[in-house]
């Protein structure tokens, strides 16, 4: 089982965009209130602009549904290991939209196209390339779609980065375990024999070493994960 640092790094970090109409924004700026018009779907180009807010990363947009009950089941497998999906996901701008995006008046409704609404889709930041998925897709199909968008958006090579990251996560797990053990032992020695006990001194040294190694591994992981976006075409 992954340890705390790896779990934090593998955490799928969602963005939850909420559209604020110009009327509402003006209210806040001008400190007044007035009646708001009915909710209206934005044109698809404007919807992409609202969602991305100039973020050039490819998009992974998931709409929640009552069946999923707030889980990420449409993205993450309930049967297989999800680490590769989670690691690939870090290079996407992950957007989660509420169930009522299915209403044709929802500001972001048009992101999902005019045909049958996909459960999630992957897209380039401007929507010029879109891969719709129904939520029941196989993990292989999902990875294939993610790879396609990643290759389109980033300079190579995300697969190599992914392999290195997996190794670093294993290393971080080992360091976390060691740190937990040493810290617990140090606490125990301090509380039973006092802070000046000979064992406390050696444990402190070991703990310092493990913490330094952990910092190094974290920095290495950060460097390895930092893919460069391709320059925008003129």
């Amino acid at each position: 089982m992954r340890q705390r640092t790896s779990r934090e790094l593998l955490n799928v970090s969602w963005d939850y965009p909420v559209y604020v109409s110009e009327t509402e924004a003006a209210e806040v700026a001008g400190n007044y209130s007035r009646a708001r018009g009915p909710r209206k779907a934005l044109p698809v180009e404007k919807a992409y602009l609202e969602i991305t807010q100039e973020d050039q990363r490819p998009l992974l947009v998931l709409r929640e549904c009552d069946a999923c009950e707030g889980t990420d089941d449409a993205l993450l497998s309930t049967r297989f290991d999800n680490e590769k999906t989670m690691l690939k996901a870090q290079w996407f701008h992950l957007v989660k939209l509420p169930t009522h995006v299915t209403d044709d008046s929802h500001p972001f409704h048009n992101l999902f196209g005019e045909q049958e609404m996909p459960h999630l889709f992957l897209a380039s930041h401007d929507g010029s390339r879109v891969v719709p998925l129904d939520g029941g897709q196989s993990q292989t199909d999902l990875w294939h779609a993610m790879d396609e968008l990643l290759e389109h958006a980033y300079l190579p090579d995300h697969e190599r980065s992914l392999k290195k990251q997996l190794k670093l996560l294993d290393a971080l797990d080992g360091l976390d375990e060691e740190e937990n053990r040493l810290a617990a032992d140090l606490d125990d020695v301090i509380e039973k024999k006092g802070p000046k006990a000979p064992k406390a001194k050696s444990l402190r040294k070991k703990l310092e070493r493990v913490r330094a190694e952990r910092e190094e591994a974290l920095a290495a992981r950060h460097d390895v994960a930092a893919l460069k976006l391709k320059p925008a075409a003129d």
Partner: peptide
């Protein structure tokens, strides 16, 4: 951040030991 702090909930003996020393 690296440690799982939920394991440690019995705080009385921890404080007692530290105060003793």
């Amino acid at each position: 951040l690296g440690q799982d702090l939920t394991v440690e909930w019995d705080w009385e003996p921890k404080v007692h030991g530290r105060v003793r020393h």
